[in-house]
Design a protein around this nucleic acid. Structure first.
Length: 419
RNA sequence: GGAGAGGUGGCGGAGUGGUCGAUCGCGUCGGUCUCGAAAACCGAAGUACUCGCAAGGGUACCGUGGGUUCGAAUCCCACCCUCUCCGCCA
């Protein structure tokens, strides 16, 4: 959601910002609606004022038993001019809100131009891409060879884009999630949350999944399955005026995420890279405006430390304009190197949305006389399913066994390798 | 799912058609008093939109949305949520 007042004063700048997103100029349509709306407000309020004064006068006349005066006042013509104006006003208001809420966030100034991921910028890298000379296998080859990863059965149970994990591999998934959650809720200072996995439409609107991206969601009854824990965690402060968050509010949760993958038919169909259901440890921070940039760096570092501790090779990408998501002002993607695929694949996405979600959610804090929108940030810390893939492919041995990262040993009941 | 009760300002709790944005108590903030504090007393204090250079106006908001009425926190309808009891259930 955009600040209509800012658009009013910076119409050209707003159009320029939308142009960076590849969108045509919007401001004149917005300002036309806004002018209509404000004009209607003046009319409606004037009519309301007149009505109130009249009603009050009748009440007072009745109070002192002046029936003649009551009669006289009641006799006046009722102007229902207001009613049609009220309807026009409601309509304009809805149109304006629809338009404003359908437009993506304004990008941070440092975001590079570019249409797709080829214009993303690598900011840092940890480790060198491994190309084992024994011919590295992909994660599903490894998992299936171990007899612990079963796509066929999952297909029978549910359909494509599901998997059944068994034995040590099922435990590995649990271990990864537990360890990440422990790391973030412990040393990294995030508050662990167990949120609802089904949320209503207003909640999804708050974080920006609705109304534009409904086809990406699974829906059951009048509730939606969360596509990420970002949704419930960020909405923890929705509709609230919180105390000034001098220290950012930091929340983390390990939850399943559900995505319909509507637009990605045929992409990454093999393996568990792109599933309808996956576990993810999510990080969400609520900050004052002046703190969000530093918090973005901190959050991303927390996710990077996870990858490093798992012995993975990773790099941080600053997403270009065309690759930055709808609600984000700035996004860092973390990509891990998958030796089996010989490719960098996204494993975490850390975004600063500035006040974009806060405005939709109406999440604010008090500072002196002012009520200020918070800034919200979210990041994966990290996607469990993809972390599992990365661990398998990175730590595979020539014989097809997997050497488990040391940090996971306690979570694996002492098991140090698979196979 | 069935029956009942209820949703009012930070909290508690009045208010069943009229000058109610809302009595009162607690809490909070400012002041007086005090060496300082407490107590007491005085005062302030919601959110949003909108008009205005400003000072300062206006309008709306008593779970949400409709309706009745000159006038709704109060009456009617629908929905949501909470609580109690019953049933079912991980």
């Amino acid at each position: 959601m955009h600040d209509i007042r800012w658009i009013r004063q910076n119409a050209e700048a707003f159009d320029a910002e939308m142009a960076r997103r590849g969108l045509p100029a919007q401001s004149s349509a917005i300002l036309t609606l806004d002018a209509f709306r404000r004009d209607a407000i003046l009319k409606v309020e004037a009519a309301q004022k007149a009505r109130n004064e009249r009603a009050k006068a009748i009440g007072m006349a009745k109070g002192r038993g002046d029936t003649a005066e009551v009669e006289r006042l009641m006799g006046g013509i009722v102007e229902d001019l207001a009613q049609s104006t009220v309807e026009v006003l409601a309509q304009r208001e809805a149109e304006l809100t629809d338009l404003l809420s359908s437009l993506p966030n304004i990008l941070a100034p440092e975001i590079p131009e570019g249409a797709d991921e080829s214009a993303n910028i690598t900011l840092r890298q940890h480790g060198e891409p491994a190309r084992p000379n024994f011919g590295a296998k992909q994660h599903f080859e490894l998992g299936e060879a171990l007899g612990l990863m079963d796509f066929e059965t999952a297909g029978r149970l549910s359909g494509s884009r599901f998997v059944v994990l068994k034995g040590a591999l099922a435990r590995l998934e649990r271990a990864l999630g537990q360890w990440m959650l422990d790391t973030h809720s412990g040393p990294n200072g995030y508050t662990e949350v167990a949120p609802p996995l089904l949320v209503n439409a207003a909640t999804l609107y708050g974080t920006g999944q609705l109304p534009k991206f409904e086809e990406d969601l699974f829906k059951t009854g009048d509730k939606y399955l969360i596509p990420t824990a970002e949704v419930p965690l960020t909405n923890l402060v929705a509709q609230q005026i919180i105390p000034e968050p001098v220290e950012p509010l930091r929340y983390t949760a390990l939850t399943p995420s559900f995505r319909s993958e509507a637009g990605s038919a045929g992409r990454d169909t093999r393996g568990m890279l792109r599933q309808h259901q996956f576990h993810k440890v999510e990080l969400v921070s609520i900050t004052r405006p002046e703190d969000s940039e530093a918090e973005h760096e901190r959050m991303t570092s927390c996710a990077e430390a996870i990858l490093t501790a798992l012995g993975l090779t990773w790099r941080r990408q600053l997403l270009c304009a065309g690759d930055t998501g709808f609600g984000a002002a700035k996004t860092y993607d973390l990509e891990v190197w998958l030796p089996g695929q010989a490719a960098w694949r996204e494993i975490s996405s850390c975004s600063n949305t500035h006040a974009f979600q806060a405005r939709r959610m109406n999440a604010r804090f008090k500072r002196g006389k002012d009520t200020v929108f918070v800034h919200t940030l979210n990041g994966s810390g990290v996607a469990v399913g993809r972390a599992l893939i990365a661990v398998l492919e990175t730590h595979q041995q020539e014989d097809g066994s997997i050497a488990l990262p040391e940090v996971l040993h306690p979570y694996m009941g002492g098991l140090t390798r698979l196979g």
